[in-house]
Write a protein that binds this DNA or RNA. Structure first.
Length: 357
DNA sequence: AAGCAGGTCAACCGCTGTCTA
DNA sequence: TTAGACAGCGGTTGACCTGCT
């Protein structure tokens, strides 16, 4: 069924709205309510498409719109919600009072997404980007024939290789496929989930668990090293969705040590995980050196998300925008401090996870 | 000062879902 | 059941801004 254009576009104005148009639209809606968007422009004396009027009202003229830069709490919420909802901007906006889907979408695309990419984190899966690699060949080389490791087949991917971690993913994958509940129970038992576990309803699927996974009872895993269990679980999804055949390839390995217990696998993976998130080949990259998310602690590289958040952003609001107002901006110190909690995937109290179910 | 490149964001486009006659 | 009307959504565009050379 074809869809007729929302209005006859001939003679209708397009482009930026003038203050006069804003005033007309605001006055009309405050007097009569939005009503029918198709007939509104004519009734309000506007030479605009009804759709354009609706967008202008919804995104900029609504009295409850919050303008100005995003707070860190909002940023964290966006990232957390995006990891759950994906590009469902309207759903994300519904949980950020005063923010519009358009604004959030723009902010994600211009700030957060680029930042995640710069730090080697896939903005879609919220995971380190293993999808760029030829996993099957890498796995074969790494797990079953160390002698095959050479520069040509790694192509700079070596920092991402972690047999323990891949084994963990394989184990979790198998476990999840066989019985997701057992996996959840295992994660609970091993304190893979964070202390705020009670916030996560048991109905959550493993891939939806947004937990700050700190393996606390293992001396090799310092409490200062937040292990993104979301990453591990998302990696399972990634493999399922993007790497056709990976699962079967992994299961076909004949490595003798694949019978290790999940516990030891988790332990070893935890110990070596930080080495495998350093994706920038450039040691001078400010995001991997000075502000690196790969920090050297005790001689080993430790992962943190501290640098995922960008350097301070100037006011995103053009001063000459007739409908833009500028909020006070946070200090650099505030950003750094708040940033340290980014991507730990704690569910704010204000969020009701059941809404997503 | 001028030109260029990259970033930002308001607005538009095209599609889908829902409602109703 | 079907088709039209409409609202809403996500992706994209392009004008404008800023910083660098």
């Amino acid at each position: 069924m074809g869809r007729a254009p929302c209005c006859d576009k001939t003679g209708l104005k397009k482009g930026p709205w003038t203050p006069e148009e804003d005033l007309k639209l605001t006055n009309y809606i405050q007097s009569h309510g939005p009503g029918n968007w198709r007939t509104l422009p004519k009734n309000a004396g506007l030479e605009r498409c009804g759709k354009s009027c609706r967008l202008r009202w919804a995104n900029y003229l609504r009295p409850d719109i919050k303008r100005g830069r995003f707070s860190f709490e909002e940023e964290e919420t966006i990232i957390q919600l995006h990891s759950i909802l994906g590009n469902k901007w309207s759903a994300i906006a519904a949980r950020l009072p005063g923010r519009t889907d358009n604004e959030i979408k723009n902010y994600w695309n211009t700030h957060i997404r680029k930042r995640l990419l710069r730090n080697g984190i896939d903005p879609v899966t919220h995971a380190p980007r293993l999808d760029m690699l030829d996993l099957s060949s890498i796995l074969t080389s790494t797990l079953c024939n160390q002698s095959l490791l050479n520069a040509s087949n790694l192509l700079g991917a070596q920092p991402l290789l972690n047999p323990q971690l891949l084994r963990l993913a394989n184990t979790l994958l198998s476990l999840k496929q066989e019985n997701p509940d057992i996996l959840v129970q295992y994660l609970h038992k091993n304190q893979l989930s964070n202390s705020q576990q009670h916030l996560v309803p048991s109905s959550l699927q493993p891939s939806q668990l947004q937990v700050q996974s700190t393996i606390q009872n293992d001396s090799t895993c310092t409490t200062s090293t937040p292990i993104p269990s979301t990453w591990a679980l998302n990696q399972i999804e990634l493999m399922q969705n993007n790497a056709t055949g990976i699962s079967s390839n992994m299961k076909s390995f004949s490595c003798p040590d694949t019978q290790e217990t999940l516990t030891s696998t988790l332990t070893n993976a935890c110990a070596s995980l930080p080495k495998y998130v350093h994706c920038s080949p450039n040691p001078t990259d400010p995001f991997t050196s000075e502000n690196s998310n790969v920090q050297s602690i005790g001689g080993s590289q430790m992962f943190s998300f501290d640098s995922v958040r960008s350097t301070p952003i100037r006011s995103p609001s053009p001063l000459n925008s007739p409908s833009t107002f500028i909020n006070s901006s946070s200090s650099v110190d505030d950003e750094r401090e708040s940033f340290s909690s980014l991507l730990k995937f704690e569910i704010p109290d204000s969020l009701d996870i059941s809404d997503f179910m």
